[in-house]
Write a protein that binds this DNA or RNA. Structure first.
Lengths: 203, 203
DNA sequence: GGAATTTCTGACCGTCCGGTCAGGATCGAC
DNA sequence: GTCGATCCTGACCGGACGGTCAGAAATTCC
């Protein structure tokens, strides 16, 4: 980011416009295939003006990714050790599926980054993602040991939740091609996943 | 493809070398971000020579994708209506997970294509994927109605199998970053998914 | 209303991209 | 061993790319 804390009204507006346009383009095409001209056009400004606000294509991408990591993990942070185990995990599933529905661009941006080997995010995977997952895995592991949910590998349970929910955003085209028109993939997914996890976790 | 059925020994060798190199590069970077120079270098030949065998970058990509669709669906085709329901579905899960382990490049190539909205595969999703999935969904639906497995939406069950197994190939970097060194994600996944689907499907 | 600052633009640059081409090297059949 | 077909290369092309720059337009502040 060129400017750390946008001061003027115009700066705030254009920063947002650029980041939104970049999210649109990066999530559709990936970082490498996206072009500054596309982003500039999507944001309704000229390329040099775009580069007045962000010093490079990479800078835009990094800003998006760093904002994303926090948003992405919030639903996981909400899991409470003192809640009802099944309902806590099911709540997490529901929140994650809702994010796939409401923020599919963010999901695809993340997918692009990881599929390509996380060239810009590897450090944060280790320093931010892993500790949080480990903490919550401990909570889940304790629930399993106490017999409050069925025995399960907590890390792989979390992977399962990620993959099952993000699938509906990242592979949206495939899901809709298979289901055909006139169906609501996300509504069906909510019921399906609710059933799946209730069965899986019932002690 | 320039040559429909490679005749000479050299043609066969170079075709394979190019397709393997292209799979490597496309699966890492996606179609748009990959370059012919990278593919040529990976295949150990010059760019003009590469273009002697395939008439364009797109032609290589399309060849890979059309080969992929068949390989990809083979495990699904193997599901037999006259087998034991739970074991048939678990066999499918196992075969699919094995593909993630042994063919992660193919998995990622497919992921890139779908995440980007399937610009080259949309027709085949409708004409090849959907009919096959519908057929197998009918089989699974019959099993559920007969009470031989628990009630489940067959299409979403198939989506679940896809997402849970492909996750270990496509998001390999993330899985390993979270699990840390010295673990075998695929071995753990096999046990985890076996448990998950047995619980989910038990009548 | 005018100076200072911020915002914006058209023209441009070097590089890399997908692809072409003329011709040279190599191979296989006889 | 020679001759035609196949295989391969260096040099090159037009276009698109990320990014720069000098200066014009708009905004802000007094």
């Amino acid at each position: 980011m060129t400017v750390q804390e946008p001061r003027t009204r115009i700066q705030r507006k254009n920063h947002l416009a650029i980041l939104d346009a970049a999210l649109e383009v990066f999530s559709r095409q990936g970082f490498g295939a996206a072009t500054l001209d596309q982003i500039a056009a999507e944001a309704g400004m000229s390329k040099p003006n775009l580069l007045y606000y962000f010093k490079s294509k990479e800078a835009i991408h990094l800003t998006l990714l760093s904002q994303l990591m926090d948003i992405w993990l919030d639903p996981l942070r909400e899991i409470r050790a003192d809640g009802d185990p099944v309902e806590e995990i099911l709540g997490y599933v529901r929140r994650k599926l809702q994010m796939s529905r409401e923020m599919p661009r963010e999901s695809r941006l993340f997918a692009h980054e990881i599929v390509q080997g996380a060239p810009h995010m590897r450090p944060e995977l280790e320093s931010v993602l892993r500790p949080l997952v480990d903490a919550k895995a401990t909570v889940i592991g304790d629930w399993a040991e106490a017999g409050r949910i069925a025995p399960v590998d907590p890390h792989h349970l979390i992977f399962s939740i990620w993959s099952l929910t993000q699938h509906y955003a990242d592979f949206d085209v495939q899901v809709r091609a298979v289901l055909g028109d006139g169906r609501d993939p996300f509504a069906e997914a909510e019921e399906h996943l609710d059933r799946l996890f209730r069965r899986m976790l019932a002690p």
